[in-house]
Amino acid sequence: MRNRALFFGDIRFQWKYGFYFLYLVFTLLYLMILQLLPSAWKPKVAMLLVFSDPAAMGLFFMGAIIQLEKGEHTLQSLSVSPVRSHEYVLSKLFSLGLLATLVALCLATAGKLLDHPMHFILVVFAGSCIFSSIGMMIATKTETLNQFIVATIPMELVINLPAVAYVLGYNHPLMLLHPGCCIMELILFGERMVLASLSLSFWAIGLFLLTIHVVEGFFSTLGGAKK
């Protein structure tokens, strides 16, 4: 019940602050770009677009979301309510993951990437959770939005550059220790499915658990300590 209320609360929040409108505009824009490209480029460009934008939405917006919630004293209220840290984290991850997956599905359809829809949805959703978890951890450790933006840049480079290198052909098996490369392997190539799936699951679950731990610590500084 609480999970559902938090989840729908987050969706309403994202709707109110224009996330859905923004991504509608971006989806149309990306679809237009994909239409202008030669057919041979479409799948790879579509994948890079999915990976760098909708999937990475959490890393971009989480700082602003947490700052706003802090400013409006939402977090202080939540920290002394029965809401648990893992419920708060889950709700953020799932609500942003839902929007990311919807946008990614549109782009994948235009980019001819949607041979296995369920498989695609799971991979994009896991990727979105990874980005959002990292964004949430950084957001709880920074004081201002500008500090958050500065702190996310190295993370974006660390996540994006190996993934781009993987798409461009540098695909040594050890690269699959990197979550971005796993996403590319699972959606674009599919030759080392087991290794990539295991690695991606490890990253998604590991970062989720770490985020809960960090958020628990963060909530305790706001006036409530809950396990």
Binding site: Y17, G18, F19, L22, V25, F26, L29, F60, F61, G63, A64, I65, Q67, L68, G71, L145
Partner: peptide, 18 residues
């Protein structure tokens, strides 16, 4: 009206580079 909307607008305005 706030920094969250500011981030969304900044993302949208990134289109100037397009």
């Amino acid at each position: 009206h706030n920094k969250l909307e500011g981030m969304a607008m900044a993302k949208l305005s990134g289109c100037i580079l397009l």
